[in-house]
Amino acid sequence: GAPPLPPYSAGGREVTMKKGDILTLLNSTNKDWWKVEVNDRQGFVPAAYVKKLDSGTGKELVLALYDYQEK
């Protein structure tokens, strides 16, 4: 199953993602919540729920390892 959710501390809205989604990583300075862009929406997802990909394009991409439903 998915890892436990860290307390929400990102101070911005969250976004929903599905397992297998490829998201653009915008900011990973917060260790628990990373800012991503998905379907032209920006928001935060739990860092433990995604994995960085080596895209080779200069853009940082992450793979959704679990479904996440915004609150």
Rank of each mutant, 00 (worst) to 15 (best):
V38F: 14
T57I: 11
P3R: 05
P3V: 06
K51N: 05
K31P: 14
Y8D: 09
F44P: 00
N30A: 07
K19M: 08
D21A: 05
T57L: 14
V62N: 01
P6Q: 02
E37I: 09
K71F: 14
Q42P: 06
A2V: 13
T57P: 14
S9R: 14
A10N: 07
Q69E: 11
W33N: 00
E14I: 13
Q69I: 13
K52Y: 09
T57R: 09
D67N: 06
E70S: 14
P7D: 11
L63W: 05
L5Y: 07
V15D: 01
G1A: 13
L5H: 07
V15K: 02
S28A: 15
L23C: 08
S55Y: 12
P46G: 01
Y68P: 00
A2S: 10
S28M: 10
D21E: 13
E37F: 06
P3D: 04
N39S: 12
L26N: 03
T24C: 07
G43N: 02
N27T: 06
D67P: 05
N30Y: 05
V38T: 15
G11P: 15
S55H: 11
N39A: 13
L5D: 06
K18V: 07
K18C: 08
G56L: 14
D54S: 13
Q42C: 08
L65S: 02
T29Y: 08
G20V: 00
Y49K: 02
W34F: 06
N30P: 04
V62A: 14
E70D: 11
S9E: 09
Y68C: 02
L65V: 06
G56M: 14
T29A: 12
N30S: 10
Y66E: 04
D21C: 05
K35F: 15
G20R: 02
P4V: 08
L63I: 15
L23K: 01
T24Y: 10
K19L: 05
D40S: 14
D40T: 10
L25H: 01
L61D: 04
K19A: 13
N30L: 07
N27W: 06
A47R: 08
E70W: 09
K71M: 15
T16V: 06
D67W: 03
R41G: 11
A47S: 14
N27Q: 11
G20Y: 03
T24H: 08
V15R: 02
G56T: 14
A48T: 10
P3I: 06
A47C: 05
K71H: 14
W33E: 00
V45G: 00
I22A: 03
K35N: 06
F44R: 02
V50E: 00
K35L: 15
D67A: 05
T29S: 14
N30G: 10
Y68N: 01
V38I: 15
T57H: 14
E37L: 08
I22T: 05
V38W: 07
P46N: 01
R13T: 10
Y66S: 04
R13H: 14
P7T: 05
T16M: 07
L53S: 03
L23R: 01
L25A: 02
Q42I: 15
Y68F: 15
Q69A: 13
Y49C: 03
D40V: 06
A10T: 12
V50A: 03
L26P: 00
G12N: 06
K59Y: 11
V45W: 01
S9H: 14
R13K: 14
A2G: 09
Y49G: 01
Y49V: 03
A47K: 04
V45A: 03
K71Q: 15
D32C: 09
K19D: 02
Y66W: 13
G11E: 13
L53G: 03
S9Y: 09
Q69Y: 15
V38M: 14
K71S: 14
G11L: 07
V45P: 01
E70N: 10
G12S: 07
L53Y: 09
I22E: 03
L26A: 03
V62E: 00
L61W: 11
E14V: 14
L23F: 08
K19H: 05
L63S: 04
Y68K: 02
G1S: 12
F44D: 02
A64T: 03
A10H: 15
G20C: 04
G1W: 08
K18P: 01
T16D: 08
G11Q: 13
G12K: 06
P3N: 05
L5Q: 06
G12L: 10
L63D: 01
G20M: 03
G58V: 09
